[in-house]
Amino acid sequence: MYRKYLKRWFDFIFALIALIILSPLFLCIFIVIKSNSAGPAVFKQARIGRNGQVFQMYKFRTMALNAPTNCPTHLFEKPEAFITKPGKFMRGTSLDELPQLINILKGDMSIVGPRPSLVNQADLILLRNNNGSSAVRPGLTGLAQINGRDELPIDQKANYDGIYAEHITFLKDLKIIINTIFIVLTHSGIKEGKQ
């Protein structure tokens, strides 16, 4: 019942309320980004959604315009050369992820689910296809994010995604959300070069 019907309503209401409450913060971040570097404050990146559908995921821009695209930042030779000053802070606090609330409103994403992979992450996509987690709407946070986050290797991330896909309940989603807030506040498991 929750997975099939209520989860989507929960996502929509949560995202709508969060966007209203956080709108002053969105404006402040927009101004800081625009005043520190050229280019748009928000950028779109192709990601893999539920059942392999490609969608455009929104993020606050944390990198210079000449940064490589569609590549995880941790694979850059010198990621610090591309990350802007406000971008470093936003990545450390996960503020760059806030525009994904719009993706949640649109139905591209959920509050909780596997983090959406880049279109060229064939290894992760294959593992998710094999364990059934590709059938789940990708999330702003997920089981992998509260169990190691950026520090996890691909196979472990996919394993957590599969476990989540098999056991989706409201209480488990609520627990993941609460744990995510704690992890973000303590900066646990965040690497300089997160995706």
Rank of each mutant, 00 (worst) to 15 (best):
P68L: 10
N66T: 10
I125L: 03
I176Y: 00
I181H: 07
Q121R: 06
N130T: 13
I163Y: 12
S134L: 14
A67T: 03
K172N: 15
K44S: 12
I125E: 01
K59F: 08
F170G: 02
G39L: 06
Y164W: 08
I178Y: 08
P72M: 03
P79A: 07
L140E: 04
K172E: 15
F82L: 09
F55D: 03
D150G: 00
A135W: 08
I183C: 05
I21G: 04
N66M: 07
L105Y: 09
A38Q: 15
K88I: 12
A67V: 02
S134D: 14
A18W: 08
I178P: 02
G52D: 08
T141R: 08
F14S: 11
H167P: 12
F170R: 02
K172M: 14
A15S: 10
G49W: 08
R8W: 01
Q45L: 02
F26H: 08
P86W: 09
G132C: 11
C28R: 05
E166Q: 15
S23W: 06
P24W: 09
P24E: 09
F26S: 07
I17V: 15
I111D: 05
K194T: 13
N70F: 14
K78I: 00
P68R: 09
Q145E: 01
C71K: 15
F76N: 03
K106T: 00
G107Y: 06
E151C: 10
P99Y: 13
Y160T: 00
I83A: 03
A46W: 12
Y58I: 12
G148V: 00
S133K: 02
K106L: 12
G113V: 00
D123Q: 07
I178G: 06
F14R: 05
W9R: 10
S188Q: 15
P99F: 12
T169L: 10
T62I: 13
D108G: 10
G87Q: 02
S94P: 09
E77L: 11
F170N: 01
L185S: 05
P116W: 04
P99S: 12
V136E: 01
L118H: 02
D96P: 03
I190Q: 04
L118V: 00
L118D: 03
A144V: 00
T186H: 13
F60E: 09
L127W: 03
Q121V: 01
D161I: 00
P68N: 09
L95N: 05
A64M: 15
R3K: 13
K191I: 03
I17T: 12
N159C: 06
T180D: 06
K44G: 13
V184I: 12
N36H: 15
I146H: 01
M109F: 08
F89K: 07
F182V: 14
A165P: 06
P68K: 09
H74R: 13
Y58K: 13
G107K: 07
A18Q: 09
I168Y: 04
N103Y: 11
S134P: 10
I21L: 12
T186D: 11
N159P: 06
L98K: 05
D155H: 15
I104M: 06
V184T: 04
I17S: 11
K34R: 14
R137V: 14
F76R: 04
M109Y: 08
Y5K: 07
R137A: 13
M1A: 13
T169V: 05
A158Q: 00
G87I: 03
A64T: 15
D161P: 00
M1Y: 12
G52K: 08
D161L: 02
L140C: 08
P68V: 10
L118G: 00
I177W: 13
G132P: 11
D150Q: 01
S110W: 01
